[in-house]
Design a protein around this nucleic acid. Structure first.
Length: 830
DNA sequence: TGACCTGACGTTTTT
DNA sequence: CGTCAGGTCA
């Protein structure tokens, strides 16, 4: 019989949740109450108790990191119970990956092929631009962003264009809905989907064919959802379809940790769950296993000010724990320097770097801390922020691959037809874009083939271009591409042949990364980088090299090959016949491209021996022994634009709650009296959330700035006080409750920005200049033998060096990932 | 066409 | 302050 010792460490509500079998289950899990343990154990229990085969269980999360972690933990429990990989594995995935899979399986139902492209936010903006032009409305940058957001919002709310139109109440809204319709039509025609489509289109499939939903519901017997408080209406409806048949839906969440309202998450989903699903069993997990009592008290101080919440109070058996240390710096640089110093001291006293984390409200704050940590030689990793895959050079190379995979993808094709320079500029690109209006030309790439005279070879006969019902616009567009000059024409021909050749190679050859390396070489991409921006060319080349490493890694890593067939599909093979569907390299490329668009490069490797820097949003679901919560100033955290928006303020408060409850033992809270923002130094005021925390839980670091830097006006309001130290803390705290502090408003007439203090500004400039002059690195020759860390591969030892300078390649034997060659600048000496 | 300049704008937060 | 879209000119 199988061992059930995995049930032993569970407390009684946890046990109840794990052993619950059929019917809806709502688990209200406070921060640190062991919800991941409950989900993973429940999955394991369903399998081990014989309730369901592994592959009939689905668990959905919001981040790839969470999905990966669960996968690991479930596998661990199963292997300990001697039941490893029999009968397949459970589906553990994010909502968006699951959506992508469903789409892949049934692409033809929503007018796509399996090779569809997934657009990121930038691509979406490009698409909006294109559609706006076609839609006959001029849209400037701000308007494009608004439209993009509008489309996204409609999709998150599960409205297709028709439903969006029904909602409209005035002409402007009608216009937006019409735009949405055009956008969708264009996306369909070019075989692309955006993030919202990954939810909306599967929904559309299920709405149109309830039988299909039924088959999935039959197949996936048990469905679980993590972070349920962050689901949006589209996700909710998707769950309804998937569980319609059996209603075995178990959701886990905490309304106090709902922080994605701006992404159209609906807290009502969790608050009203019991009403929506009759006979729901409700389990409350209120014992916290993560934090000391003092931390929980502080978190509660903050969250209890919220106006809408289910009352609850977490408790712990842990010690009271150390007080929160509060530090106030003179400015943001000093704040960062303090944190770095403190971290170094903790390290000297034996703390593991991986026990330490810095949380900030906005990504932009991270840079200061990076600089200071780098200055002290402390290894760190930044989670989130500008993703590797968002860099222009990476997107360029990927766009080539995307076009090869999906030639209908106009966004990618038009992005790179003129990059590197081959005589195709904006004017020509516009002509090509317009040409897609011509009857018989379905995509920009089609138009290019026509221009290049390659229509026969590409299988598109010229006579497909139907000359009959043609309006002036079409005639004009056709004339425009026919009259192209020799240089643009040549460039287009070159590009077209390149792509066609690339497709043929992918169809025939196995070695994808070699192909891509050849591609980069063939288009002289490095020369392009050199000429475009010599300053940063080396960086960018390194990034491209890293991409090649990542691709090779993907090939060799034995990643799960994309499963092309639906587990419930009775529909036979897809009607499409694409060159790349069957080939190994094509399959791998599809998998790689999907991963690059769905997985942030920073999702993995939490075990690396580094200090972690991230936004509070990214921190959700994680825990650290010691946390530095920085930038706790009004205006910054809470980050509010509309002082009157209570819902927004509540969400900020929940965010602060999330941040505090990540802490296991020791919390530092820091802020600065002056902060540089948009190149200007501004005075600040302490965060109202900070003032909510009972003073008895706080100790002021004596190193804090106590100068009275001309705070005459502030002192009367909520402010820093004049003498420093803790004496005026309570007075500041007692005045905070009722007022809306004018200091926290951005007031263009206030003299905040011309703060005059020549001594200080001189001093401030110097160190930051020095920090920019990065100290010369050691010569490459003595890297051999050094122990280094790499953000993805972890710790390793350098075995070989080739080349020198930042460009050097190091061959490193990594402890976890084996032998890899990486670019030098990506590793840090430990 | 493409190099170069200029001015506007931006920072929430992410799949 | 930094980026980037859009405009100007060779």
């Amino acid at each position: 019989m199988t061992s059930r010792e995995y049930l032993d460490p569970l407390n009684s509500p946890q046990l109840r949740a794990v052993q619950h079998r059929d019917g809806p289950l709502l688990i209200l899990a406070g921060a640190g109450s062991g919800k991941t343990r409950v989900i993973t154990n429940r999955i394991a229990h369903l399998i081990l108790s014989g309730a369901a085969d592994p592959d009939r269980i689905v668990a959905v999360t919001f981040t790839n990191r969470a999905a990966g972690e669960m996968r690991e933990r479930v596998a661990e429990i199963l292997s300990r119970a001697d039941q490893s990989d029999e009968a397949g594995a459970p589906v553990l995935s994010t909502f968006h990956s699951l959506g992508a899979r469903l789409l892949r399986w049934h692409a033809d139902r929503v007018g796509r092929t399996r090779q569809f492209t997934i657009l990121d936010q930038d691509d979406q903006l490009a698409l909006v631009k294109e559609v706006a032009q076609r839609h006959g409305r001029e849209a400037d940058h701000a308007e494009r962003k608004r439209l993009r957001r509008y489309v996204e919002r409609m999709k998150n709310r599960a409205f297709d264009p028709e439903e969006a139109f029904e909602q409209t109440r005035n002409e402007r809204e009608e216009d937006d809905a019409r735009f949405y319709e055009t956008y969708q039509a264009h996306a369909r025609r070019t075989n692309v989907v955006d993030f919202g489509d990954l939810l909306l289109l599967p929904l559309k499939m299920f709405r149109e064919d309830p039988d299909l939903a039924d088959r999935y519901s039959h197949r996936w017997q048990y469905v679980m959802v993590d972070e349920f408080q962050d689901t949006n209406p589209a996700q909710y409806e998707l769950l309804e379809h998937l569980t319609h048949r059996h209603r075995n839906l178990a959701v886990v969440g905490d309304d106090d940790q709902s922080i994605y309202r701006w992404r159209d998450a609906t807290v009502a989903n969790i608050l009203d769950f019991e009403d929506d699903f009759e006979e729901t069993e409700v389990v409350k997990l209120e014992q916290n296993y993560r934090s000391t009592e003092l931390i929980l008290d502080a978190a509660n101080d903050v969250i209890e000010h919220n106006t809408e919440r289910r009352p609850k109070r977490l408790w712990t058996e842990k010690d009271r724990g150390p007080k929160i240390t509060l530090f106030t710096g003179r400015d943001d640089r000093e704040e960062a320097a303090y944190v770095a110093d403190e971290i170094e001291a903790l390290g000297r006293n034996g703390a593991d770097w991986s026990d330490l984390a810095i949380f900030y409200r906005t990504n932009a704050q991270g840079r200061q801390f990076e600089e200071q940590l780098r200055g002290l030689g402390i290894p760190y990793r930044v989670v989130g922020g500008t993703s590797f895959y968002n860099r222009a050079e990476i997107k360029d190379v990927l766009a080539y691959l995307q076009v090869a995979m999906n030639p209908s993808d106009d966004v990618s094709a038009l992005r790179v037809v003129g990059t590197p320079k081959r005589g195709v500029g904006d004017v020509t690109v516009d002509k090509l874009r317009n040409a897609t209006r011509i009857h018989g030309i379905d995509s920009a790439f089609d138009a290019m083939r026509v221009v290049a005279g390659l229509t026969e070879r590409a299988g598109v006969a010229l006579d497909r271009i139907d000359p009959s019902p043609r309006d002036d616009g079409q005639l004009e567009a056709l004339a425009a591409i026919e009259d192209l000059g020799g240089r643009p024409k040549g460039g287009i021909a070159e590009f077209t042949e390149l792509i066609i050749d690339l497709r043929e190679r992918i169809a025939q050859e196995d070695d994808l990364s070699e192909l891509v390396a050849q591609l980069v070489d063939r288009i002289n991409y490095f020369d392009h980088l050199d000429s475009k921006d010599p300053e940063r060319a080396d960086d960018r080349k390194d990034n491209v090299q890293e991409l090649l490493v990542a691709l090779r890694d993907f090939e060799q890593g034995g990643e799960i090959p994309i499963d092309d067939e639906s587990p419930v599909d009775q529909e036979g093979p897809h009607p499409e016949q694409d060159l790349l569907v069957g080939s190994t390299a094509g399959r791998q490329l599809r998998g790689f491209l999907e991963r690059t668009s769905l997985v942030q490069d920073t999702d993995d490797e939490p075990s690396a021996e580094t200090v972690t820097l991230m936004t509070v949003h990214s921190a959700k679901g994680l825990e650290f022994d010691t946390v530095f919560l920085v930038g706790m100033e009004d205006e910054l955290f809470p980050n509010i634009r509309d002082e009157g928006d209570q819902a927004e303020l509540n969400e900020e408060r929940r965010l602060a709650y999330v941040a505090i409850t990540r802490t296991e033992r020791k919390l530092y809270i820091t802020n600065a009296r002056r902060r540089r923002i948009w190149g200007q130094t501004r005075r600040t005021a302490p965060s109202r959330f900070l003032l909510d925390i009972d003073e008895s839980r706080i100790e002021h670091d004596p190193k804090s700035c106590t100068d009275d830097i001309n705070y005459g006006r502030t002192r009367r309001q909520r402010g820093w006080g004049s003498g420093g130290g803790s004496s005026d803390w309570s007075s500041a705290s007692s005045t905070q409750s009722s007022d809306h502090d004018p200091m926290s408003q951005v007031d263009p007439n206030a003299d905040d920005h011309d703060f005059v203090d020549p001594d200080w500004s001189d001093q401030e400039l110097k160190p930051s200049v020095e920090a920019n002059d990065s100290p010369p690195d050691e010569g490459s020759h003595d890297w051999v033998g050094k122990t280094v860390s790499h953000s993805r591969f972890g710790i390793g030892k350098v075995e070989e060096v080739s080349g020198d300078g930042d460009d050097a390649r190091l061959t490193i034997e990594f402890v976890q990932s084996g032998r890899k060659t990486v670019v030098r600048k990506y590793v840090k000496i430990l």
